[in-house]
Each structure stands twice: as C-alpha cells, then as structure tokens.
Simulated assay, not measured.
Amino acid sequence: MDSRGGQVEGDEPDGESLPELLRSWRSRTDPRAIMGLAASGRRSKGLTQRDVARLTGVSERWYGALERGNEAKYSADFLDRLSSALRLSPAERRALYLRAVGRPPALASTPDVDAATDVDEVLLQQFLDNQSPAPAFAADLAWNVISYNEPLLDWFPWAAYQANQMRWALLEPEAREHLVNWEQDWARPFLGQIRYERAHHPKSEALRQLERDILAGSPAARQMWDRREMVEHSHGALRRLRIPYHQGREVAVRIVALRPMRSDLLRVIVLLEGRHGSDAV
C-alpha cells in the first residue's frame, strides 16, 4: 500500500468497499487544483458530490447513487473520467475498475504497442514516486503514458486515462495554450522525435499509426512535418509552460529524459521546475 492509501501496482484492492474508497478519494482532492471550481466558501477541503458529477458529466443524483453502492454498467469512458477528476494514481485506478466492474483497466489499445516487457513495474513506479515534487512519467516507444507520479497528474490531468503524450501535445487545442511557444519549442521538436523513432523502428505499427493520426488530425503538423526535421530526444531542453495548476503563471522546466538500461523501448521523463528566462533549475 502506498502513502496515500492506494494499493501497490499489481495488488488487488483491500477490503474497503467502492463507496468508502470514493468518499476517501473525493475528500482528499483539492478543488483549488481543478480549473473552474470555486474554492472559497466551502465547508470542507475536498470535492463535493456535485463537483464530481459536474467533472464526470453525470447528474448529482446518479453519482450519489454510485457512492451509495448502487450497481450499474459503468463504462470505461466514465471510469476514466472519474479517475481523472479524483486524481487517482495508476494503482487506485486499477482498484476503481476492480470494484466497479470486476476487472482491471484495459491496456492501451494502440495497435502493436511496442511494450518494454523487461521492466519491473513496481520498481518503475517507486522511481517515479521518488521524483516528487517534480512531475515524472514513463511512456512506451509510441509515447503512450504507462505510469506516472502524483505531481504529473496535478500538472497534466489528461495523463490519467491511457493518454498519449504526442497526441495530446499535437492534437488537443488546450496544448497550444499550455505549451508556451507551441510551434517552435514543442511541436517541431516532438514531430522531429517521431520522425527519428520511425526511422529507427520502421516496422513499428504503433509509431506508424501515431504518425498517421497526427498528420490526419492537424494541418499545422502536416506543414511542419514537411520540413523533414529529425530530433533524437528532448533531454536537457528548457521549455515553458502555462497550465491551470500554476494558476496561469508561466514557469520554465528543464526536461530530463532517461531510458532504462534493460530496454530502449521505454522512456522516462522528469520535469524540473526552474526560474523563468533562466537556465537554472
């Protein structure tokens, strides 16, 4: 069990019921970390049932029935929205699925995902958790996020539901607002990394599909792709963010990119916050 009461990745949930878990997770979630929720005038520090219902797109009555233990056919889409709203860790998301639908969440559905099978998942999660307060995550060859620590979820809530780093950065409209100097500092280097990995792993269907999806979904990406730039990695790069977690304040981050010695199909990213306009971290 981890320090927040969740299970270690791979363990089954303990004897607590789903309503007990939901109430506990809801009460610990800080509304100030969620854009659009008023934090003043509240009687308690956590989220209300109304907050969670609003964040997950269901009625307050429907969500209240869930916390009372009423059984229903919960979709993966709803459970992922709930995981994101409650800022659940990967282990807690697994416990939610097991309690709600009797099975763990499915793996990423990207075709022919090149998984790093020789990596100890528990050790990897411990490494990521130990990077706190710096956000950190691990992604596979095609940039599917497979594990992350709690600060990463505070900064980027989209990571909670089988997210893909490149699809978010290059296709989601909010990314252009959150990634400062989006085209020059983020989009072009990211596209260069995709081209680099495509050249080194030409048989990867996951990378091939990632390229197709991004070029089909973004005219801007198609124009930048024609520059034929190639970038090996982002390690050491200093970039700027403007995300809701920092309440609109622009922050500089140093990107630390690592690969485990046992696999070149996995990358680990740590974001070290620095001073704006400075190379210091």
Rank of each mutant, 00 (worst) to 15 (best):
T110M: 03
Y63R: 08
Q125M: 05
V122T: 12
L98E: 07
D77H: 12
S132M: 10
G64C: 03
D140N: 12
E121Q: 12
G102Y: 06
G64K: 03
L98Q: 13
T56E: 02
D80P: 00
L124C: 05
T117W: 15
D118M: 07
N144H: 13
S147I: 01
L153N: 09
L153W: 03
L107K: 11
D112N: 07
R99L: 08
N70V: 15
Q126E: 10
L88P: 00
S59C: 02
L88Y: 04
A72C: 09
A115S: 11
R99Q: 01
T110F: 14
A134Y: 12
N149G: 03
N149R: 07
P90Y: 01
A139G: 03
N70Q: 13
V58A: 08
S59W: 00
A160P: 10
P151V: 02
R68M: 11
A142F: 02
R61W: 04
F137E: 02
D120N: 13
V122L: 15
N149T: 12
F78N: 03
Y63K: 00
D112K: 11
L107F: 03
R81H: 13
S83C: 09
A115Y: 04
D129F: 02
R81F: 06
L153D: 07
V119M: 01
L98I: 13
F156A: 13
S83A: 12
R61Q: 15
T56S: 08
L152C: 15
A72H: 15
W143T: 01
A160N: 06
P104D: 10
Y161A: 15
R99D: 04
A100I: 05
S109E: 10
Y97V: 04
R61M: 02
G69W: 13
P157A: 07
S132I: 10
S59F: 10
E60L: 00
A136Y: 00
